[in-house]
Write a protein that binds this DNA or RNA. Sequence first.
DNA 1: AAAGAGAATTGTAATAAATACAAAATTAAA
DNA 2: TTTAATTTTGTATTTATTACAATTCTCTTT
Lengths: 138, 138
Amino acid sequence: MKKQIKDIVEYLVKHNIKPSYPRIKILEALIEKDSHPNVDEIYNSLLKDAPTLSKTTVYNTLNVFAEAGIVKVLIIDGKEARYDIDTIEHGHFKCDNCDNITDLNISIDDKIISELQGFKIKEKRVYCKGICNKCLSI
Amino acid sequence: MKKQIKDIVEYLVKHNIKPSYPRIKILEALIEKDSHPNVDEIYNSLLKDAPTLSKTTVYNTLNVFAEAGIVKVLIIDGKEARYDIDTIEHGHFKCDNCDNITDLNISIDDKIISELQGFKIKEKRVYCKGICNKCLSI
DNA sequence: AAAGAGAATTGTAATAAATACAAAATTAAA
DNA sequence: TTTAATTTTGTATTTATTACAATTCTCTTT
Ligand SMILES: [Mn+2]
Ligand SMILES: [Mn+2]
Ligand SMILES: [Zn+2]
Ligand SMILES: [Zn+2]
């Protein structure tokens, strides 16, 4: 269930991001990958189309996207950030073996709100770790 | 609500960890702090009692503790690991302003189990980020 | 079209958490 | 006491990410 964005440029502009070539390509890669890629995966996948692309640009752009709220940064074991274009609240499962991250249709119950009276909640995150079904069946 | 451990040495031995002086001190610090400290906080708080303590030993020891299951490693924004002596499943709130981490009495509903049929779940994590009540009232 | 201002991109250097590794020290066994 | 095994330590290394200045690009104004 890949994220559907008809017009990439329009989508960027709508979020006040100037649609430069690297930004368009990086957003395309995020949509295409659909698997919570890391910086290196994005960078390497674009080298053919954008040979002069700098890894710093990938970092910068992803930070711009995160600031604008069009990507979520997933920190699951601290080694590296993973990026998700699906900004609707949902959870994740990361496989310790293959490093794949799959989506979970889950959101944090509002009962925590009572515990966080007087707090400003900006983000709620849920994830699990373990071994995925594919890795288990090998 | 600090974790109550009567006999530190006995507790370590029970978990098959040889109770060396650094290990005892680091465990004591984890219990005493009660605030999900990072490596530097633990290290610095022990320098008076253990002037020869190496930061590598703190890293090693915390890894030993994590392996043995007597601490949980919290990765919330990837900058650094935080350590929790409370191993009962619960959630956390991290303040973007003061970096304090507070406990949340929450656990992931078992409804996710249905989504993870055939997966081996080793860990379930929940956390929120935002601004804590103390920082908001300043 | 040319010039200029502002923004984005790039390459390199710097940062910092965590690990690797081997030597020294400590502990336990014989 | 000797010896073996384990732990601790210091230093070097790794690696993801950021800092920063120079270059390039883009868009507006002349
Ligand atoms: Mn996702
Ligand atoms: Mn906790
Ligand atoms: Zn897997
Ligand atoms: Zn705070």
